[in-house]
Design a protein around this nucleic acid. Structure first.
Lengths: 197, 197
DNA sequence: GGCCAAGTAGTCAAGCTTGACTAGCCTCTA
DNA sequence: TAGAGGCTAGTCAAGCTTGACTACTTGGCC
């Protein structure tokens, strides 16, 4: 699960530099503990790891008020890696956490790129549904009955996701959201103004 | 994620004693690596942990042909704990892995119990959908636009799951599947015959 | 003025998961 | 008949996640 990594990198990028607790609070205000199941401990770990990997830089800040804290800033490599993670998360099926995280970080992509990735997802879901329908005609004798039944649920989820992805693609085409290449995006608006989109 | 624990305990119970590789193969034949994302390493770990916790017993078997191996058998406490895990997984929303694992182990429950748990899930999903609809009328200004959009996807999944759970409940009421209290269940059929339901 | 609750900021050990690796046996084939 | 490849069976270190814990500050209330 690199959803944690994606979200943590994303918040640091969007806010133009942040310390651990800030990342934690921001994710909390997005309701991310519930849909991404991220606990505080993981956030601090992910920040340190990303810094060790050269995706973020660490600046120790003496606590002006309150305890000492560490400021993290994005590096160019970090941004590239994160954009790649978002693209991957949009395409990859069977990974709800990554999808959720990627949606949250959608405006990191340019509009055309985002549309391309979402369309790729649509294509994959359609292919998997075809595959699954085939499987249902020739069920595996080894798998018990209720395991086959479970496949039914998965197919339902896939159809829901398919409709949703199609409508997202459409909305993006119609100009919804402020994407990376739009005026007023996180790339063109200075630091502390970014967090309130 | 205790889905691993549930599946591992479940296979050992259903087969009436198994060694690690057997559990691994059985899960593989169910396609469990894909829907439960379980890797071999986790299986061996889960078996050892369960044995340490008194949920399984360990019997070293000298390898008659091939390497040495360890036989695991279920204990009474292990069965109780597993039944509780299945019930919990059926009720708990927001945890796809547990739900999948619980469905796979559905016949561990008695029919009336299973129906009760599934109905509880239905009730919870309905409540959450109401909650979510309320939230959509008064969206949180702090959360960016696409995060709200993501909620849309979740609602879609919830509706799919709701329909599915209702139909499962109905099928169970109509006598589908061989449950724990039915003749021919895993509780009444001797050991090595159990794996082919 | 003093004390408690809540907020800020983060550490740490323990536990689970992952991916790569070991090692013996069996079967087929050149 | 030697070797490759695959199946059986499992180990292990490294990495990620979790939950509990520390410590300091601020604000409010009696």
């Amino acid at each position: 699960m690199s959803a944690t990594k994606l979200l943590v990198l994303g918040i640091v990028h969007l806010s133009g530099g942040a310390h651990g607790y800030q990342v934690r609070s921001e994710l909390q205000s997005w309701g991310a503990e519930s849909w991404a199941k991220i606990k505080p401990g993981s956030i601090y770990h992910a920040l340190k790891k990303a810094a060790a990997d050269g995706l973020l830089t660490e600046h120790a800040e003496p606590g002006n008020s309150g305890p000492e804290r560490v400021l993290y800033r994005a590096t160019a490599r970090g941004r590239d890696e994160m954009v790649e993670l978002v693209r991957d998360g949009l395409r990859r099926t069977h990974d709800a956490d990554m999808l959720n995280a990627s949606i949250a970080m959608l405006p990191m992509l340019t509009r055309t790129d985002a549309i391309a990735q979402v369309n790729e997802r649509v294509a994959r879901l359609e292919a998997e549904l075809v595959e699954q329908a085939k499987w249902r005609e020739h069920p595996n004798r080894d798998a018990p009955e209720h395991v086959r039944d479970q496949a039914e649920l998965w197919a339902g989820h896939a159809r829901t996701e398919l409709e949703w992805a199609k409508s997202l693609s459409k909305r993006l085409s119609e100009g919804a959201y402020t994407m990376a290449d739009d005026p007023g995006s996180w790339r063109t608006v200075p630091g502390h103004l970014k967090m309130r989109f």
